[in-house]
């Protein structure tokens, strides 16, 4: 194999690349990767790091959410900066202050949506507003009431517990930027927690992951699954391992 771009050796791998995104068939410069492939890895890593470290575009998000005729509130976690956020997941789950989030009695709202920056600003910049639009459309169609949307900075999934409780929401959906990989740096995850309150365990949540278009789970499908989970949680009285999303359950032969 040579490192050139049009050699027969590379042609051998071309049809296989439709079967996997893995970096198969990379050429050799001696024993090492070729310059092209090395730089391709470095640039993919750079994009992933930027997704983690660059701040999300809060103004654009607020405008986008407000345009859906939704009230918007802001909260920051106790992690003051990205470096602290990355090392102290406990601080990312606690609000620095809830002063800017309107409080209400338990059960005032059926559903709250919290956008938590998480590990990918790019995921929110690219996908958050259309995902919220899809979820809100289905929530309204189901005649469920919506709390103000909270934009949570330096936030982890667990921050939705105190925020959701403070809002008086029966079910909270935390939309979070997922940890970026080299191939995908902008996917969103959504975690649903019924009767949110501080101390909820991860096993009491349900997760829908890899939400992004065009290559991941599309917004409408994600919203459909989430609303199914909301309705199921309201019927069951809880979210988590006992609440299964039957609409995405694998066929029986796959176990």
């Amino acid at each position: 194999m040579s490192g050139g771009s049009a050699t027969p050796a590379l042609d051998f791998w071309e049809p296989l690349r439709s079967a996997t995104q893995a970096r198969i068939g990379l050429g050799r410069a001696g024993d090492a990767l070729t310059t092209r492939d090395r730089l391709a890895l470095r640039s993919a890593h750079a994009v992933a790091r930027d997704a983690v470290h660059l701040p999300w575009d809060l103004d654009a998000l607020e405008r986008g959410v407000a345009a859906l005729d939704l009230a918007v509130a802001h909260v920051r976690s106790r992690a003051d900066d990205r470096a602290t956020y990355l090392r102290r997941p406990d601080l990312g789950r606690e609000p620095a202050s809830l002063a800017d989030v309107p409080g209400a009695d338990e059960g005032t709202y059926d559903v709250a949506i919290v956008l938590a920056d998480g590990l990918s600003a790019a995921a929110h910049d690219h996908h958050a507003v259309p995902l919220v639009q899809a979820v809100v459309g289905r929530t309204r169609a189901a005649d469920l009431s919506l709390a103000p949307v909270v934009l949570a900075t330096q936030a982890r999934v667990g921050l939705g517990d105190p925020v959701g409780a403070h809002l008086g929401a029966t079910t909270v959906i935390v939309v979070v930027g997922e940890r970026p990989g080299l191939s995908v740096a902008d996917s969103l995850g959504a975690y649903l927690t019924h009767l949110p309150r501080p101390g909820r365990r991860d096993s009491e949540r349900n997760c829908v992951s890899n939400i992004r278009e065009p290559h991941g789970l599309d917004y409408d499908r994600a919203a459909e699954i989430l609303l199914g989970l909301v309705v199921g949680a309201r019927r069951l009285g809880e979210s988590g391992v006992r609440l299964k999303d039957r609409s995405v359950a694998p066929p029986p032969e796959l176990g």
Partner: peptide, 25 residues
Amino acid sequence: TVPGSDDVMLGYQSLAFHDVLSLRH
């Protein structure tokens, strides 16, 4: 070792096959 150091399933980076060729040498 994984192709080109990029594990496309687990979303992290390990070593490329090439890295081992280099170190063995």
